[in-house]
Design a protein around this nucleic acid. Sequence first.
DNA 1: CGCCACTTTGAATTAGCTCAAATTCCGTGG
DNA 2: CCACGGAATTTGAGCTAATTCAAAGTGGCG
Lengths: 260, 260
Amino acid sequence: MLSATAPTSFSRAARAPFAMPALPASRLADQRASERTAETLKLLQDRLAPARRVVHAGEVVYAAGERFATLFILNSGCFKMVNLAVDGREQVVGLKFRGDWLGFDGIAGAAYACDAVAMDTGEVWMVRYDELLAACRSCPELLTVLHEAMSRQIGRERDSMMSLCTLPADARVAEFLRSWAESLARSGLRSDQITLRMTRAEIGNYLGMTLETVSRALSKLARSGVIAFAGKGRRDIRIDDVAALSAFVQRCLAPASALQ
Amino acid sequence: MLSATAPTSFSRAARAPFAMPALPASRLADQRASERTAETLKLLQDRLAPARRVVHAGEVVYAAGERFATLFILNSGCFKMVNLAVDGREQVVGLKFRGDWLGFDGIAGAAYACDAVAMDTGEVWMVRYDELLAACRSCPELLTVLHEAMSRQIGRERDSMMSLCTLPADARVAEFLRSWAESLARSGLRSDQITLRMTRAEIGNYLGMTLETVSRALSKLARSGVIAFAGKGRRDIRIDDVAALSAFVQRCLAPASALQ
DNA sequence: CGCCACTTTGAATTAGCTCAAATTCCGTGG
DNA sequence: CCACGGAATTTGAGCTAATTCAAAGTGGCG
Protein backbone atom coordinates (compact mmCIF):
# COMPACT_ATOMS: atom_id res chain seq x y z
CA MET A 1 0.00 0.00 0.00
CA LEU A 2 2.73 2.39 0.93
CA SER A 3 4.87 1.09 -1.85
CA ALA A 4 2.03 1.66 -4.26
CA THR A 5 1.54 5.30 -3.46
CA ALA A 6 5.08 6.38 -2.76
CA PRO A 7 6.49 6.02 -6.30
CA THR A 8 3.55 7.88 -7.78
CA SER A 9 3.97 10.91 -5.61
CA PHE A 10 7.70 10.77 -6.14
CA SER A 11 7.48 10.75 -9.88
CA ARG A 12 4.97 13.57 -9.79
CA ALA A 13 7.30 15.64 -7.65
CA ALA A 14 10.25 14.92 -9.90
CA ARG A 15 8.41 16.14 -12.98
CA ALA A 16 8.30 19.77 -11.89
CA PRO A 17 6.44 21.53 -14.72
CA PHE A 18 8.28 24.31 -16.56
CA ALA A 19 11.23 23.93 -14.22
CA MET A 20 13.75 22.15 -16.47
CA PRO A 21 12.06 22.02 -19.84
CA ALA A 22 14.94 20.59 -21.84
CA LEU A 23 15.82 17.63 -19.64
CA PRO A 24 13.40 14.77 -20.26
CA ALA A 25 13.36 11.69 -18.07
CA SER A 26 15.24 9.66 -20.68
CA ARG A 27 18.13 12.11 -20.62
CA LEU A 28 18.41 11.67 -16.88
CA ALA A 29 18.31 7.89 -17.21
CA ASP A 30 21.03 8.05 -19.87
CA GLN A 31 23.21 10.12 -17.59
CA ARG A 32 22.79 7.69 -14.75
CA ALA A 33 23.59 4.80 -17.05
CA SER A 34 26.67 6.60 -18.30
CA GLU A 35 27.90 7.07 -14.75
CA ARG A 36 27.25 3.44 -13.97
CA THR A 37 29.28 2.41 -17.01
CA ALA A 38 32.18 4.57 -15.90
CA GLU A 39 32.08 3.22 -12.37
CA THR A 40 32.03 -0.35 -13.57
CA LEU A 41 35.00 0.20 -15.84
CA LYS A 42 36.87 1.86 -13.01
CA LEU A 43 36.19 -1.05 -10.71
CA LEU A 44 37.40 -3.55 -13.26
CA GLN A 45 40.50 -1.53 -13.93
CA ASP A 46 41.36 -1.18 -10.25
CA ARG A 47 40.66 -4.75 -9.25
CA LEU A 48 41.79 -6.70 -12.26
CA ALA A 49 44.09 -4.43 -14.25
CA PRO A 50 42.96 -6.29 -17.34
CA ALA A 51 45.11 -6.60 -20.43
CA ARG A 52 44.00 -4.19 -23.12
CA ARG A 53 43.82 -4.75 -26.81
CA VAL A 54 43.21 -2.24 -29.52
CA VAL A 55 41.06 -3.56 -32.33
CA HIS A 56 40.32 -2.20 -35.78
CA ALA A 57 37.23 -2.43 -37.93
CA GLY A 58 36.74 -5.94 -39.20
CA GLU A 59 38.89 -7.64 -36.60
CA VAL A 60 37.45 -10.67 -34.88
CA VAL A 61 37.92 -10.77 -31.13
CA TYR A 62 36.56 -14.26 -30.82
CA ALA A 63 34.92 -16.64 -33.23
CA ALA A 64 32.23 -19.26 -32.82
CA GLY A 65 33.65 -22.60 -31.82
CA GLU A 66 36.80 -21.24 -30.22
CA ARG A 67 37.49 -22.54 -26.77
CA PHE A 68 36.06 -20.17 -24.16
CA ALA A 69 38.42 -18.82 -21.55
CA THR A 70 38.10 -15.08 -21.38
CA LEU A 71 35.45 -12.40 -21.23
CA PHE A 72 35.91 -9.06 -22.93
CA ILE A 73 34.75 -5.68 -21.73
CA LEU A 74 34.35 -3.02 -24.34
CA ASN A 75 36.03 0.24 -23.40
CA SER A 76 35.52 1.98 -26.72
CA GLY A 77 34.36 1.27 -30.25
CA CYS A 78 31.44 -0.88 -31.25
CA PHE A 79 31.02 -4.54 -32.05
CA LYS A 80 28.59 -6.80 -33.80
CA MET A 81 27.80 -10.32 -32.68
CA VAL A 82 27.31 -12.66 -35.60
CA ASN A 83 25.55 -15.99 -35.29
CA LEU A 84 26.07 -18.72 -37.85
CA ALA A 85 23.62 -21.60 -38.23
CA VAL A 86 24.70 -25.04 -39.35
CA ASP A 87 22.91 -24.56 -42.65
CA GLY A 88 24.87 -21.41 -43.40
CA ARG A 89 22.34 -18.77 -42.37
CA GLU A 90 24.17 -15.87 -40.83
CA GLN A 91 22.77 -13.11 -38.70
CA VAL A 92 23.85 -10.15 -36.67
CA VAL A 93 22.21 -10.92 -33.33
CA GLY A 94 23.50 -8.03 -31.27
CA LEU A 95 25.45 -4.81 -31.13
CA LYS A 96 27.81 -3.89 -28.32
CA PHE A 97 29.06 -0.57 -27.06
CA ARG A 98 31.29 0.81 -24.32
CA GLY A 99 30.68 -0.91 -21.02
CA ASP A 100 29.18 -4.00 -22.60
CA TRP A 101 30.62 -7.43 -22.00
CA LEU A 102 31.37 -9.91 -24.74
CA GLY A 103 31.67 -13.66 -24.40
CA PHE A 104 28.89 -14.68 -22.02
CA ASP A 105 27.61 -17.04 -24.66
CA GLY A 106 30.77 -19.09 -24.24
CA ILE A 107 30.39 -19.97 -20.57
CA ALA A 108 27.80 -22.71 -20.98
CA GLY A 109 29.40 -24.79 -23.70
CA ALA A 110 33.06 -24.00 -22.98
CA ALA A 111 33.20 -22.51 -26.49
CA TYR A 112 32.02 -19.23 -27.91
CA ALA A 113 28.75 -19.47 -29.78
CA CYS A 114 29.13 -16.54 -32.15
CA ASP A 115 31.64 -14.23 -33.76
CA ALA A 116 32.49 -10.91 -32.12
CA VAL A 117 33.55 -8.50 -34.84
CA ALA A 118 34.75 -4.93 -34.36
CA MET A 119 32.95 -2.38 -36.52
CA ASP A 120 35.22 0.43 -35.51
CA THR A 121 38.56 0.91 -33.92
CA GLY A 122 38.24 0.45 -30.21
CA GLU A 123 39.70 -1.08 -27.11
CA VAL A 124 38.67 -4.25 -25.32
CA TRP A 125 39.74 -5.33 -21.91
CA MET A 126 40.42 -9.02 -21.51
CA VAL A 127 39.60 -10.86 -18.33
CA ARG A 128 40.20 -14.54 -17.95
CA TYR A 129 37.02 -16.09 -16.65
CA ASP A 130 38.77 -18.19 -14.01
CA GLU A 131 40.72 -15.19 -12.77
CA LEU A 132 37.54 -13.15 -12.65
CA LEU A 133 35.88 -15.80 -10.50
CA ALA A 134 38.88 -15.86 -8.22
CA ALA A 135 38.80 -12.08 -7.89
CA CYS A 136 35.10 -12.20 -7.14
CA ARG A 137 35.84 -14.17 -4.03
CA SER A 138 37.73 -11.27 -2.48
CA CYS A 139 35.58 -8.59 -4.04
CA PRO A 140 31.87 -9.43 -4.13
CA GLU A 141 31.19 -6.19 -5.92
CA LEU A 142 32.80 -7.69 -8.99
CA LEU A 143 30.32 -10.51 -8.92
CA THR A 144 27.47 -8.04 -8.69
CA VAL A 145 28.79 -6.18 -11.68
CA LEU A 146 29.17 -9.40 -13.65
CA HIS A 147 25.67 -10.59 -12.89
CA GLU A 148 24.15 -7.24 -13.66
CA ALA A 149 25.89 -7.20 -17.02
CA MET A 150 24.53 -10.64 -17.86
CA SER A 151 21.08 -9.73 -16.65
CA ARG A 152 21.04 -6.53 -18.64
CA GLN A 153 22.08 -8.42 -21.73
CA ILE A 154 19.19 -10.83 -21.29
CA GLY A 155 16.77 -7.95 -20.87
CA ARG A 156 18.05 -6.04 -23.88
CA GLU A 157 17.95 -9.03 -26.15
CA ARG A 158 14.34 -9.58 -25.16
CA ASP A 159 13.54 -6.01 -26.01
CA SER A 160 15.03 -6.35 -29.45
CA MET A 161 13.15 -9.60 -29.93
CA MET A 162 10.02 -7.68 -29.11
CA SER A 163 10.84 -5.02 -31.69
CA LEU A 164 11.38 -7.69 -34.30
CA CYS A 165 8.06 -9.32 -33.60
CA THR A 166 5.73 -6.44 -33.01
CA LEU A 167 6.95 -3.54 -35.13
CA PRO A 168 6.53 -2.96 -38.87
CA ALA A 169 9.69 -2.37 -40.90
CA ASP A 170 9.72 1.44 -40.74
CA ALA A 171 9.26 1.45 -37.00
CA ARG A 172 11.92 -1.19 -36.57
CA VAL A 173 14.46 1.01 -38.29
CA ALA A 174 13.43 4.00 -36.19
CA GLU A 175 13.69 1.93 -33.04
CA PHE A 176 17.09 0.68 -34.16
CA LEU A 177 18.36 4.26 -34.42
CA ARG A 178 16.82 5.21 -31.10
CA SER A 179 18.44 2.27 -29.43
CA TRP A 180 21.82 3.07 -31.01
CA ALA A 181 21.55 6.64 -29.74
CA GLU A 182 20.66 5.36 -26.30
CA SER A 183 23.70 3.10 -26.34
CA LEU A 184 25.91 6.03 -27.21
CA ALA A 185 24.46 8.06 -24.36
CA ARG A 186 25.06 5.15 -22.04
CA SER A 187 28.66 5.13 -23.22
CA GLY A 188 28.98 8.78 -22.28
CA LEU A 189 29.19 9.88 -25.92
CA ARG A 190 27.08 12.42 -27.72
CA SER A 191 23.97 10.78 -29.04
CA ASP A 192 22.60 13.38 -31.41
CA GLN A 193 25.01 12.37 -34.14
CA ILE A 194 25.58 8.74 -34.98
CA THR A 195 27.78 7.17 -37.58
CA LEU A 196 26.34 3.89 -38.75
CA ARG A 197 29.19 1.50 -39.14
CA MET A 198 27.09 -1.04 -40.92
CA THR A 199 25.95 -1.25 -44.51
CA ARG A 200 22.24 -1.24 -45.30
CA ALA A 201 22.57 -4.96 -45.90
CA GLU A 202 23.95 -5.53 -42.41
CA ILE A 203 21.29 -3.39 -40.80
CA GLY A 204 18.66 -5.30 -42.73
CA ASN A 205 20.14 -8.58 -41.64
CA TYR A 206 20.08 -7.44 -38.02
CA LEU A 207 16.50 -6.20 -38.27
CA GLY A 208 15.12 -9.03 -40.35
CA MET A 209 14.41 -7.15 -43.56
CA THR A 210 16.05 -6.48 -46.91
CA LEU A 211 18.56 -3.74 -47.56
CA GLU A 212 16.07 -1.99 -49.87
CA THR A 213 13.52 -1.82 -47.09
CA VAL A 214 16.12 -0.31 -44.75
CA SER A 215 17.02 2.28 -47.35
CA ARG A 216 13.40 3.21 -47.96
CA ALA A 217 12.74 3.46 -44.22
CA LEU A 218 15.71 5.76 -43.72
CA SER A 219 14.64 7.93 -46.64
CA LYS A 220 11.17 8.17 -45.17
CA LEU A 221 12.55 9.12 -41.76
CA ALA A 222 14.65 11.83 -43.37
CA ARG A 223 11.69 13.08 -45.42
CA SER A 224 9.65 13.26 -42.22
CA GLY A 225 12.37 15.33 -40.61
CA VAL A 226 12.86 12.82 -37.80
CA ILE A 227 16.47 12.30 -38.84
CA ALA A 228 18.83 14.09 -41.19
CA PHE A 229 21.81 12.86 -43.15
CA ALA A 230 24.93 14.67 -42.03
CA GLY A 231 28.19 14.82 -43.94
CA LYS A 232 28.41 13.81 -47.59
CA GLY A 233 27.79 10.08 -47.29
CA ARG A 234 24.57 8.66 -45.92
CA ARG A 235 26.15 6.96 -42.97
CA ASP A 236 26.22 9.91 -40.64
CA ILE A 237 22.84 10.55 -39.17
CA ARG A 238 21.76 13.50 -37.10
CA ILE A 239 19.06 12.96 -34.52
CA ASP A 240 18.01 16.30 -33.16
CA ASP A 241 15.18 14.90 -31.11
CA VAL A 242 15.24 11.32 -29.89
CA ALA A 243 11.65 11.68 -28.71
CA ALA A 244 10.63 12.25 -32.34
CA LEU A 245 11.94 8.78 -33.15
CA SER A 246 9.82 7.24 -30.43
CA ALA A 247 6.85 9.25 -31.67
CA PHE A 248 7.47 7.94 -35.17
CA VAL A 249 7.40 4.36 -33.87
CA GLN A 250 4.09 5.03 -32.17
CA ARG A 251 2.67 6.60 -35.30
CA CYS A 252 3.56 3.45 -37.24
CA LEU A 253 1.61 1.41 -34.71
CA ALA A 254 -1.48 3.63 -34.79
CA PRO A 255 -3.81 2.00 -37.30
CA ALA A 256 -6.27 4.63 -38.55
CA SER A 257 -4.36 7.91 -38.45
CA ALA A 258 -2.05 7.38 -41.44
CA LEU A 259 -0.89 10.94 -41.90
CA GLN A 260 1.93 10.40 -44.39
CA MET B 1 46.87 -27.62 -37.67
CA LEU B 2 46.37 -30.50 -35.34
CA SER B 3 43.19 -28.95 -34.04
CA ALA B 4 41.94 -28.61 -37.58
CA THR B 5 42.32 -32.26 -38.50
CA ALA B 6 41.52 -33.91 -35.18
CA PRO B 7 37.81 -33.01 -35.00
CA THR B 8 37.26 -34.14 -38.58
CA SER B 9 38.66 -37.58 -38.06
CA PHE B 10 36.86 -37.83 -34.77
CA SER B 11 33.49 -37.05 -36.22
CA ARG B 12 34.07 -39.49 -39.03
CA ALA B 13 34.89 -42.22 -36.55
CA ALA B 14 31.84 -41.42 -34.47
CA ARG B 15 29.51 -41.72 -37.43
CA ALA B 16 29.94 -45.47 -37.86
CA PRO B 17 27.74 -46.32 -40.85
CA PHE B 18 25.00 -48.91 -40.31
CA ALA B 19 26.21 -49.49 -36.76
CA MET B 20 23.53 -47.72 -34.71
CA PRO B 21 20.93 -46.60 -37.22
CA ALA B 22 18.28 -45.36 -34.78
CA LEU B 23 20.41 -43.18 -32.53
CA PRO B 24 21.24 -39.89 -34.22
CA ALA B 25 23.67 -37.42 -32.69
CA SER B 26 20.86 -35.17 -31.53
CA ARG B 27 19.38 -37.96 -29.44
CA LEU B 28 22.71 -38.40 -27.70
CA ALA B 29 22.99 -34.67 -27.06
CA ASP B 30 19.48 -34.64 -25.65
CA GLN B 31 20.33 -37.43 -23.28
CA ARG B 32 23.43 -35.67 -22.06
CA ALA B 33 21.43 -32.49 -21.57
CA SER B 34 18.80 -34.40 -19.66
CA GLU B 35 21.43 -35.82 -17.32
CA ARG B 36 22.91 -32.38 -16.82
CA THR B 37 19.49 -31.02 -15.90
CA ALA B 38 19.00 -33.76 -13.33
CA GLU B 39 22.43 -33.22 -11.82
CA THR B 40 21.87 -29.50 -11.53
CA LEU B 41 18.53 -29.97 -9.82
CA LYS B 42 20.09 -32.45 -7.45
CA LEU B 43 22.86 -30.04 -6.56
CA LEU B 44 20.42 -27.24 -5.88
CA GLN B 45 18.27 -29.49 -3.77
CA ASP B 46 21.19 -30.76 -1.70
CA ARG B 47 22.88 -27.43 -1.19
CA LEU B 48 19.99 -25.06 -0.85
CA ALA B 49 16.93 -27.14 0.01
CA PRO B 50 14.88 -24.51 -1.77
CA ALA B 51 11.26 -23.85 -0.92
CA ARG B 52 8.94 -25.43 -3.45
CA ARG B 53 5.78 -24.07 -4.86
CA VAL B 54 3.21 -25.81 -6.97
CA VAL B 55 1.75 -23.60 -9.67
CA HIS B 56 -1.24 -24.06 -11.92
CA ALA B 57 -1.89 -22.91 -15.45
CA GLY B 58 -2.34 -19.16 -15.60
CA GLU B 59 -0.62 -18.42 -12.29
CA VAL B 60 1.94 -15.66 -12.31
CA VAL B 61 5.15 -16.45 -10.46
CA TYR B 62 6.48 -12.96 -10.82
CA ALA B 63 5.32 -9.89 -12.66
CA ALA B 64 7.15 -7.06 -14.38
CA GLY B 65 7.96 -4.27 -11.97
CA GLU B 66 7.92 -6.38 -8.83
CA ARG B 67 10.93 -5.99 -6.64
CA PHE B 68 13.52 -8.63 -7.48
CA ALA B 69 14.71 -10.84 -4.68
CA THR B 70 14.46 -14.44 -5.73
CA LEU B 71 15.29 -16.68 -8.65
CA PHE B 72 13.10 -19.61 -9.59
CA ILE B 73 14.17 -22.95 -10.94
CA LEU B 74 11.60 -24.91 -12.84
CA ASN B 75 11.29 -28.50 -11.70
CA SER B 76 8.26 -29.38 -13.78
CA GLY B 77 5.66 -27.76 -15.99
CA CYS B 78 6.25 -25.05 -18.52
CA PHE B 79 6.23 -21.27 -18.40
CA LYS B 80 5.95 -18.35 -20.75
CA MET B 81 7.81 -15.09 -20.26
CA VAL B 82 5.71 -12.12 -21.29
CA ASN B 83 7.17 -8.72 -22.03
CA LEU B 84 5.04 -5.61 -21.90
CA ALA B 85 6.10 -2.40 -23.64
CA VAL B 86 5.16 1.01 -22.31
CA ASP B 87 2.83 1.52 -25.26
CA GLY B 88 0.90 -1.63 -24.45
CA ARG B 89 2.49 -4.03 -26.93
CA GLU B 90 2.71 -7.43 -25.35
CA GLN B 91 4.81 -10.36 -26.42
CA VAL B 92 5.78 -13.83 -25.35
CA VAL B 93 9.56 -13.58 -25.43
CA GLY B 94 10.48 -16.98 -24.13
CA LEU B 95 9.36 -20.41 -23.02
CA LYS B 96 10.80 -22.24 -20.05
CA PHE B 97 10.95 -25.90 -19.19
CA ARG B 98 12.31 -28.15 -16.46
CA GLY B 99 15.78 -27.13 -15.39
CA ASP B 100 15.41 -23.58 -16.66
CA TRP B 101 15.85 -20.61 -14.37
CA LEU B 102 13.43 -17.73 -14.18
CA GLY B 103 14.16 -14.23 -12.97
CA PHE B 104 17.58 -13.37 -14.36
CA ASP B 105 16.05 -10.33 -15.99
CA GLY B 106 15.45 -8.89 -12.53
CA ILE B 107 19.04 -8.79 -11.31
CA ALA B 108 20.11 -5.68 -13.20
CA GLY B 109 17.32 -3.31 -12.29
CA ALA B 110 16.37 -4.78 -8.92
CA ALA B 111 12.93 -5.45 -10.42
CA TYR B 112 11.66 -8.14 -12.73
CA ALA B 113 11.34 -7.02 -16.32
CA CYS B 114 8.63 -9.39 -17.52
CA ASP B 115 5.82 -11.63 -16.34
CA ALA B 116 6.49 -15.31 -15.70
CA VAL B 117 3.25 -17.19 -16.29
CA ALA B 118 2.67 -20.91 -15.80
CA MET B 119 1.10 -22.64 -18.78
CA ASP B 120 0.67 -25.91 -16.97
CA THR B 121 0.68 -27.20 -13.47
CA GLY B 122 4.23 -27.51 -12.30
CA GLU B 123 6.65 -26.94 -9.48
CA VAL B 124 9.13 -24.13 -9.06
CA TRP B 125 11.93 -23.97 -6.57
CA MET B 126 12.52 -20.60 -5.02
CA VAL B 127 16.00 -19.40 -4.18
CA ARG B 128 16.62 -16.02 -2.69
CA TYR B 129 19.33 -14.35 -4.72
CA ASP B 130 21.28 -13.15 -1.69
CA GLU B 131 21.17 -16.61 -0.15
CA LEU B 132 22.29 -18.14 -3.40
CA LEU B 133 25.29 -15.82 -3.53
CA ALA B 134 26.14 -16.68 0.05
CA ALA B 135 25.92 -20.40 -0.73
CA CYS B 136 28.12 -19.92 -3.77
CA ARG B 137 30.91 -18.81 -1.51
CA SER B 138 31.13 -22.20 0.12
CA CYS B 139 30.20 -24.14 -2.99
CA PRO B 140 31.77 -22.78 -6.17
CA GLU B 141 29.97 -25.43 -8.17
CA LEU B 142 26.74 -23.53 -7.53
CA LEU B 143 28.20 -20.46 -9.13
CA THR B 144 29.23 -22.48 -12.15
CA VAL B 145 25.72 -23.81 -12.48
CA LEU B 146 24.25 -20.33 -12.18
CA HIS B 147 26.53 -18.84 -14.78
CA GLU B 148 25.97 -21.69 -17.18
CA ALA B 149 22.23 -21.24 -16.86
CA MET B 150 22.51 -17.53 -17.65
CA SER B 151 24.89 -18.20 -20.52
CA ARG B 152 22.63 -20.85 -21.99
CA GLN B 153 19.70 -18.50 -21.79
CA ILE B 154 21.62 -15.85 -23.70
CA GLY B 155 22.57 -18.37 -26.35
CA ARG B 156 19.07 -19.74 -26.74
CA GLU B 157 17.49 -16.35 -27.04
CA ARG B 158 19.93 -15.51 -29.80
CA ASP B 159 18.97 -18.66 -31.61
CA SER B 160 15.31 -17.80 -31.48
CA MET B 161 16.11 -14.29 -32.65
CA MET B 162 17.84 -15.87 -35.59
CA SER B 163 14.81 -18.00 -36.39
CA LEU B 164 12.61 -14.93 -36.28
CA CYS B 165 14.83 -13.04 -38.67
CA THR B 166 15.87 -15.62 -41.18
CA LEU B 167 13.04 -18.13 -41.50
CA PRO B 168 9.75 -17.81 -43.39
CA ALA B 169 6.57 -18.40 -41.43
CA ASP B 170 6.14 -22.10 -42.15
CA ALA B 171 9.72 -22.86 -41.18
CA ARG B 172 9.40 -20.78 -38.04
CA VAL B 173 6.51 -22.90 -36.87
CA ALA B 174 8.39 -26.09 -37.67
CA GLU B 175 11.42 -24.81 -35.83
CA PHE B 176 9.23 -23.86 -32.88
CA LEU B 177 7.95 -27.42 -32.62
CA ARG B 178 11.43 -28.85 -32.99
CA SER B 179 12.71 -26.61 -30.25
CA TRP B 180 9.81 -27.52 -27.97
CA ALA B 181 10.54 -31.20 -28.52
CA GLU B 182 14.19 -30.59 -27.76
CA SER B 183 13.26 -28.85 -24.53
CA LEU B 184 11.14 -31.81 -23.51
CA ALA B 185 14.02 -34.17 -24.22
CA ARG B 186 16.29 -31.97 -22.17
CA SER B 187 13.78 -32.20 -19.35
CA GLY B 188 13.95 -35.95 -19.52
CA LEU B 189 10.43 -36.28 -20.92
CA ARG B 190 9.28 -38.03 -24.05
CA SER B 191 9.60 -35.71 -26.98
CA ASP B 192 7.64 -37.51 -29.67
CA GLN B 193 4.35 -36.27 -28.30
CA ILE B 194 3.89 -32.68 -27.29
CA THR B 195 0.88 -30.90 -25.91
CA LEU B 196 0.89 -27.29 -26.96
CA ARG B 197 -0.27 -25.28 -23.99
CA MET B 198 -0.67 -22.15 -26.00
CA THR B 199 -3.43 -21.00 -28.30
CA ARG B 200 -2.64 -20.30 -31.95
CA ALA B 201 -2.78 -16.63 -31.06
CA GLU B 202 -0.09 -17.04 -28.40
CA ILE B 203 2.12 -19.08 -30.68
CA GLY B 204 1.73 -16.44 -33.35
CA ASN B 205 2.58 -13.71 -30.89
CA TYR B 206 5.70 -15.61 -29.85
CA LEU B 207 6.75 -16.24 -33.45
CA GLY B 208 5.85 -12.85 -34.86
CA MET B 209 2.96 -13.85 -37.08
CA THR B 210 -0.82 -14.00 -36.98
CA LEU B 211 -2.85 -16.85 -35.56
CA GLU B 212 -4.18 -17.69 -39.03
CA THR B 213 -0.66 -18.12 -40.36
CA VAL B 214 0.18 -20.45 -37.47
CA SER B 215 -2.92 -22.48 -38.18
CA ARG B 216 -2.13 -22.74 -41.87
CA ALA B 217 1.46 -23.72 -41.16
CA LEU B 218 0.39 -26.49 -38.78
CA SER B 219 -2.12 -27.77 -41.30
CA LYS B 220 0.57 -27.84 -43.94
CA LEU B 221 2.96 -29.69 -41.64
CA ALA B 222 0.26 -32.25 -40.91
CA ARG B 223 -0.58 -32.59 -44.62
CA SER B 224 3.10 -33.16 -45.35
CA GLY B 225 3.17 -35.90 -42.74
CA VAL B 226 5.87 -34.18 -40.71
CA ILE B 227 3.57 -33.96 -37.71
CA ALA B 228 0.23 -35.50 -36.85
CA PHE B 229 -2.56 -34.31 -34.62
CA ALA B 230 -3.08 -36.76 -31.77
CA GLY B 231 -6.15 -36.95 -29.59
CA LYS B 232 -9.37 -35.25 -30.56
CA GLY B 233 -8.34 -31.61 -30.15
CA ARG B 234 -5.61 -30.05 -32.21
CA ARG B 235 -3.31 -29.30 -29.33
CA ASP B 236 -1.65 -32.66 -29.05
CA ILE B 237 0.95 -33.11 -31.71
CA ARG B 238 2.81 -36.25 -32.56
CA ILE B 239 6.31 -35.92 -33.93
CA ASP B 240 7.48 -39.29 -35.10
CA ASP B 241 10.69 -37.99 -36.59
CA VAL B 242 12.30 -34.81 -35.31
CA ALA B 243 14.74 -34.88 -38.19
CA ALA B 244 11.80 -34.49 -40.58
CA LEU B 245 11.04 -31.16 -38.93
CA SER B 246 14.58 -29.96 -39.51
CA ALA B 247 14.37 -31.20 -43.08
CA PHE B 248 11.14 -29.25 -43.54
CA VAL B 249 12.87 -26.08 -42.35
CA GLN B 250 15.65 -26.63 -44.84
CA ARG B 251 13.16 -27.26 -47.63
CA CYS B 252 11.52 -23.91 -46.86
CA LEU B 253 14.89 -22.22 -47.25
CA ALA B 254 15.73 -23.90 -50.54
CA PRO B 255 14.65 -21.43 -53.24
CA ALA B 256 14.12 -23.33 -56.47
CA SER B 257 13.00 -26.79 -55.42
CA ALA B 258 9.46 -25.96 -54.32
CA LEU B 259 8.01 -29.45 -54.29
CA GLN B 260 4.76 -28.72 -52.45
C1' DC C 1 -27.91 -28.79 -24.90
C1' DG C 2 -26.04 -24.62 -26.00
C1' DC C 3 -22.69 -21.16 -25.27
C1' DC C 4 -18.11 -19.46 -26.01
C1' DA C 5 -13.57 -19.58 -27.06
C1' DC C 6 -10.60 -21.55 -30.25
C1' DT C 7 -9.53 -23.18 -34.81
C1' DT C 8 -9.73 -23.75 -39.71
C1' DT C 9 -10.22 -22.28 -44.32
C1' DG C 10 -11.21 -19.04 -48.08
C1' DA C 11 -10.84 -14.52 -50.49
C1' DA C 12 -9.18 -9.97 -50.86
C1' DT C 13 -5.56 -6.79 -49.56
C1' DT C 14 -1.01 -5.14 -48.51
C1' DA C 15 3.64 -4.80 -46.56
C1' DG C 16 7.71 -6.11 -47.73
C1' DC C 17 10.52 -8.75 -51.18
C1' DT C 18 12.70 -9.42 -55.68
C1' DC C 19 14.44 -7.72 -59.73
C1' DA C 20 16.32 -3.98 -62.24
C1' DA C 21 18.36 0.41 -63.31
C1' DA C 22 20.36 4.74 -62.11
C1' DT C 23 23.24 7.31 -58.82
C1' DT C 24 26.71 8.26 -55.42
C1' DC C 25 30.72 7.37 -52.94
C1' DC C 26 35.42 6.14 -52.29
C1' DG C 27 39.82 4.19 -53.06
C1' DT C 28 43.39 3.49 -56.58
C1' DG C 29 46.33 4.28 -60.07
C1' DG C 30 47.53 6.85 -63.94
C1' DC D 1 44.42 16.16 -59.97
C1' DC D 2 41.34 13.51 -62.38
C1' DA D 3 39.60 9.30 -64.50
C1' DC D 4 38.13 4.83 -63.52
C1' DG D 5 35.94 0.78 -61.25
C1' DG D 6 33.67 -1.49 -57.66
C1' DA D 7 30.79 -1.37 -53.82
C1' DA D 8 27.00 0.74 -51.56
C1' DT D 9 22.80 3.22 -51.93
C1' DT D 10 18.51 4.85 -53.79
C1' DT D 11 14.35 4.42 -56.21
C1' DG D 12 10.90 2.32 -59.23
C1' DA D 13 7.80 -1.60 -60.66
C1' DG D 14 5.87 -5.93 -60.25
C1' DC D 15 5.22 -9.96 -57.36
C1' DT D 16 4.55 -12.86 -53.32
C1' DA D 17 4.14 -14.18 -48.67
C1' DA D 18 1.67 -12.98 -45.02
C1' DT D 19 -2.04 -10.15 -43.15
C1' DT D 20 -6.79 -8.79 -42.71
C1' DC D 21 -11.46 -9.73 -42.99
C1' DA D 22 -15.07 -13.02 -43.00
C1' DA D 23 -17.51 -17.27 -42.32
C1' DA D 24 -17.98 -21.78 -40.95
C1' DG D 25 -16.49 -25.69 -38.08
C1' DT D 26 -14.99 -27.85 -33.61
C1' DG D 27 -14.47 -28.86 -28.78
C1' DG D 28 -14.88 -28.08 -23.86
C1' DC D 29 -17.76 -27.24 -20.09
C1' DG D 30 -21.33 -25.59 -17.28
